[in-house]
Nucleic acid binder design. Structure first.
Lengths: 225, 225
DNA sequence: TTACAAACCAAGCGCTTGCTTGGTAGTCTT
DNA sequence: AAGACTACCAAGCAAGCGCTTGGTTTGTAA
């Protein structure tokens, strides 16, 4: 059964997406093929993309189901054909983002060797997540925590744990190698704040690339050996 | 005309405040005496403290005027005798916090001499602000930005500019002294994220003091000369 | 004692919210 | 062709929201 395509070409949320959108990465495509996350051009996928954008810009509470409906080009009531309630949409946004970015990080780690390279790969990866195409959803993941029900919080927290484990083991390796001085857990938490906050000031149009920013951040986190 | 004290001893927001509250610092008291900010034990002061706590815990949007009224021990409608609308309460919370913490930072800087010491003083000061008594209000200042009207945003932004200038000049001095390698503006923004994020994980009850955390953060920001 | 203003209450208004309902158009299966 | 299913619309409900109103209590000062 093929998903029907949403009909209104004017209000359709495809207008909210970058025109020259890149192809999904191999990791991304794999998750789509396994049915774990929705394809970006499916009805649900576009709803989630629009929701992420609105939740980031206005906040979850200030975004109404009427806003969501308008962004996708359907009536607000029709949203509840896809998701049982508004919170489930927020949860789905977070779930898909954390799953996707965990896979992206694993892929990035697989291409690195030395401890310092791994840390750089993680920093680059997280910056790309926060500042790139999935940035809206990542911001929602970080800042709209409180709006989830307890049960959803625990579920997302579990997924986040897997993601954080990748960080902790990389930083621990770096510490054993002598290029990190402070406790890996504290360092990770300081980095979490520093990296997620970039969404509030970094602009692609500026004269600093994401890679340059990643290098600067790395220079704070590790000392050359 | 002396401020009347709120009457309900059960619901009074004084119950929400630490029992063994320290005396206001000299900088704090000076601002109170000048009528720039409200005394913590005045009616308005307690309203703002309760509002900060609720806004931090539930978010501004999820906090209703009925919640605020209950926390202070008055009817929700009576709030509008003190402030014209709900947003004005949020604005007042932010305004008082930024004014107070700007003064605290100036006082801390005045006692420091070498560039690295000044940076450490700023880090300590900001951590105390975020994690100490004014923590709720500081968190609101950082994370409830979007809920302000445009005009209020500009006003608070102006106040924040003064605060940030203290940081930028201290980091610039440190860079000239050779103990900072990356651009002061970028460094400040990374530190902003790292320090404000501590509210999400640091616990006083743990075995790491705020001063130790400040030292660790300093070790990332500057290199010994 | 009287006068007055500040602080507050009780009630509720107008509006918006998330969500439900009953029904319809189009597609796929048999 | 008939039936089943998905995706949607139009309308609106119950609850909760920020805020207003008219009147009462309380503290201060003449």
């Amino acid at each position: 059964m093929q998903q029907q395509v949403l009909q209104d070409p004017i209000l359709s949320i495809s207008n909210l997406m970058p025109q020259n959108m890149t192809q999904p990465s191999p990791s991304h495509q794999a998750l789509i093929d396994q049915g774990i996350i929705n394809a970006p051009d499916s009805a649900k996928g576009r709803l989630l993309q629009a929701a992420a954008t609105l939740f980031k810009e206005k906040g979850y509470e200030r975004t109404t189901v009427r806003d969501l409906g308008k962004a996708v080009g359907i009536q607000s009531g029709s949203l509840f054909h896809h998701y049982p309630n508004k919170e489930a949409i927020l949860r789905a946004v977070m779930e898909e983002t954390i799953l996707l970015n965990t896979e992206l990080m694993k892929a990035a780690l697989a291409q690195s060797d030395k401890p310092a390279d791994k840390v750089l790969a993680l920093i680059q990866c997280e910056l790309e997540s926060v500042l790139g195409e999935t940035g809206a959803a990542m911001t929602v993941l970080v800042y709209e925590w409180r709006s989830l029900k307890d049960e959803s919080q625990q579920y997302i927290l579990k997924l986040r744990g897997i993601y954080e484990d990748l960080w902790i083991s990389a930083l621990s390796e770096a510490k054993e190698a002598g290029c990190v001085v402070i406790d890996p857990f504290v360092l990770r938490r300081l980095l979490t704040g520093a990296l997620s906050w970039t969404v509030n000031w970094y602009r692609q149009e500026g004269d600093m690339t994401i890679d340059q920013l990643a290098q600067m951040t790395l220079s704070l986190a590790i000392k050359p050996v």
